[in-house]
């Protein structure tokens, strides 16, 4: 199914440069990567085509791989005869001004989902009707689900992140701990 979809996307959406990330075994899912600039056209094409349509957007999820960030669009086809799922990925390399085209006009479901990705990863969505934080307060600082995130110490005069509250040595993910140390050193220098 994924091979056909890659051909279909490449044939119909110029510049999409879709590639298949095939899963080595049944333990993981195959995904399709497309070019970040063409995401709107690809999603629109996937909804409107007649060969392999997808009638619903299930969720949008972000992943931070340190070198780049990835946004995964999970599409689904709610059809009794041919149910299918697709994980469609785009890469965002700019950690400061990373932005993507919003797909709200294709799937209204993307409205809240894109707001959540913006809230958690700081990726902006162009042409989004109402892009603001959704789970964190509006004046929260930083992008919480990035791996190099350090929580702010005070929020609205409350100490929300006191020293020694978290037991970092025991359980903290090691890569992230390094990132946090680097970030703290950089902050101390400035």
């Amino acid at each position: 199914m994924h091979n056909e979809l890659v051909d279909l996307i490449n044939k119909n959406v110029p510049g999409a440069s879709a590639t298949l990330n095939a899963a080595p075994d049944a333990k993981s899912d195959s995904t399709i990567s497309v070019d970040a600039n063409s995401i709107f056209k690809v999603v629109q094409f996937l909804r409107d085509n007649t060969t392999m349509p997808f009638n619903a957007l299930q969720c949008i999820s972000g992943v931070d791989y340190l070198d780049y960030m990835e946004v995964c669009y999970v599409l689904g086809h709610f059809d009794v005869n041919a149910p299918r799922d697709l994980i469609l990925k785009v890469k965002v390399t700019d950690r400061v001004n990373g932005n993507l085209d919003s797909v709200v006009s294709v799937y209204p479901a993307a409205n809240f989902q894109e707001r959540e990705v913006f809230d958690m990863f700081g990726i902006r969505f162009n042409n989004h009707p109402d892009l603001r934080r959704i789970l964190c307060p509006d004046d929260w600082q930083g992008w919480p689900l990035r791996k190099d995130y350090v929580a702010q110490k005070y929020y609205a005069d409350m100490e929300v992140y006191p020293d020694g509250k978290m037991n970092f040595e025991d359980r903290e993910f090691i890569v992230r701990q390094d990132m946090i140390k680097k970030a703290q050193l950089a902050a101390a220098k400035n």
Binding site: A23, P24, K27, S28, D29, Q58, C59, C72, V74, I87
Partner: peptide, 18 residues
């Protein structure tokens, strides 16, 4: 190494775990 998206039918709708 890899990733999965698993859906299951919960009382309120479909739960998806990525």
């Amino acid at each position: 190494k890899g990733e999965v998206y698993v859906r299951s039918e919960c009382p309120r709708g479909e739960l998806g775990i990525h």
